[in-house]
């Protein structure tokens, strides 16, 4: 219970930092860290299936597709 509240603070923090940054590659890395913290929260709530799916899909494949998409357009916003 205590561990769950400790590991739910980086979720909000890194999502806020990802939404407010001007460098798009930095935002993608913050999204990956936030997805890994959510996968750990799923594990602490006793749901191993969803933790495995979230970690392998959202922290691995979505980050790859975002990096390829940022590379083909601009890197800095505005």
């Amino acid at each position: 219970m205590i561990l769950l509240t400790i590991f739910s603070i980086p979720i909000i923090l890194f999502s806020l930092l990802a939404a407010l940054s001007k460098d798009l590659l930095r935002a993608v890395v913050f999204l990956a860290v936030s997805s890994m913290c959510i996968a750990l929260a799923f594990l602490l709530l006793k749901a191993p299936d969803i933790a495995m799916t979230e970690a392998s899909v959202n922290a691995c494949l979505t980050t790859l597709i975002y990096v390829i998409a940022v590379r083909k357009t601009r890197r800095y916003e505005e």
């Binding site: 191993p48 495995m52 899909v57």
Partner: peptide, 9 residues
Amino acid sequence: PGGSFPGAA
């Protein structure tokens, strides 16, 4: 625990 979707990923 697992299934088809995490294995494919």
